[in-house]
Amino acid sequence: MGQPTVDEVANAMFDLVKATHGKKNLKAMDLTKAMIEKFGADAVDKKLCKLAIRQLIDSGRCIYSYFGGSFITLPPENEGGG
């Protein structure tokens, strides 16, 4: 697999947040580790994941939440979508 773009990583992260919504709280590092596992350590690194998380948050598709730690989750209006 070639190196994915920031958008592709952000999309994969979004899918993961959606799939685990309500079941598991994910931190930025959980998303990063999951992407490294999915795409391979040669294809994505922490820097690329950081950019993807920024894209995810700045686009409004995900937000940060705080429940005894900071997590990345769906905004309230999307909560039913997972």
């Binding site: 948050i57 700045d58 409004g60 940060y64 309230p76």
Partner: peptide, 16 residues
């Protein structure tokens, strides 16, 4: 305390 409050793009600085 806590929850889903904040300003766009930021994950810190506001405590619900």
């Amino acid at each position: 305390h806590g929850g889903l409050v904040g300003v766009m793009g930021y994950g810190g600085g506001i405590i619900g």
